Amino acid sequence: MDIVFIALLVVVMGGMMWWQSKKSKEQQKKVKDFRANLKPGTEVITIGQIIGKVVSVDEQYEEIVIDSEGSLLRFGFNGISREYVRPAYVSDDEVDENGNPLPKDEDADKDQAQVPVESAVTAAAAGTAIAETDAE
């Protein structure tokens, strides 16, 4: 029984190593294809986190020139990490504490217009009562 367990363990370990190797090769091929297909105008980010647009690509020497806010920088193909995609930004003023979007100003005006007059008068009276107790 011990020999069967050890043999099964070796087979499982070998399968896991083969699977990881296959995934690694696929990822390396994907990165190599990306770097080989870089064209001027593409926004990229380097492994040093420099963001810029591709100006020129020299496939013979595997060099790429990027423009980062007016500075031309030359990198080897291996220095380019990935294509840069600017992340979406949502201001804290646009969402509530749960991350749900706040109503637009137009919606807020409509909501305030729909408040019954009685509750507005009650709220105003409560505010006045609070203000009077603070004054004393």
Rank of each mutant, 00 (worst) to 15 (best):
D2A: 10
D2Y: 13
I6C: 06
A7L: 08
L8E: 04
L8K: 07
L9K: 05
L9Q: 09
V10K: 02
V10E: 10
V10T: 00
V12F: 11
M13S: 10
G15T: 09
M17N: 02
W19H: 14
W19D: 12
W19C: 11
Q20H: 05
S21G: 15
K23F: 07
S24V: 09
K25C: 04
E26Q: 01
E26T: 01
Q27L: 10
Q28M: 10
Q28F: 08
Q28C: 01
Q28H: 14
Q28I: 08
K29W: 07
K30Q: 05
K30P: 00
K32N: 00
D33F: 05
F34I: 12
R35G: 09
R35A: 04
A36W: 10
N37Q: 14
N37Y: 03
L38H: 12
L38G: 06
L38N: 09
K39W: 02
K39E: 14
K39N: 02
E43N: 05
V44A: 13
I45K: 08
I45M: 09
T46W: 00
I47M: 05
I47Y: 11
G48F: 00
G48R: 05
I50S: 11
I50Q: 14
I51A: 01
K53W: 03
K53Q: 05
K53S: 10
V54R: 09
V55D: 11
S56M: 03
S56H: 02
V57T: 01
V57N: 10
D58G: 03
Y61D: 08
E62Y: 05
E62T: 15
I64E: 07
I64A: 01
I64F: 03
V65P: 00
V65N: 07
I66T: 03
D67Q: 06
G70I: 12
L72Q: 15
L72K: 01
R74Q: 08
G76P: 00
F77L: 11
F77D: 06
F77A: 13
N78V: 05
G79C: 15
G79M: 04
I80V: 07
I80M: 11
V85A: 04
V85L: 13
V85D: 13
V85T: 15
V85R: 12
R86L: 06
P87N: 06
A88L: 15
Y89Q: 13
V90F: 00
D93S: 10
E94Y: 07
E94L: 12
N98T: 12
G99H: 06
G99Q: 11
G99W: 11
N100T: 04
N100D: 08
N100L: 01
P101Y: 09
K104Q: 03
E106W: 06
D107R: 10
K110N: 07
D111E: 15
D111C: 02
A113G: 04
A113Y: 02
Q114P: 00
Q114A: 08
V115A: 08
P116S: 14
A120R: 15
V121E: 03
V121R: 04
A124V: 08
A125Y: 03
G127K: 10
G127H: 02
T128N: 08
A131L: 13
E132V: 05
E132L: 14
T133R: 07
D134G: 13
A135L: 13
E136A: 09
E136T: 01
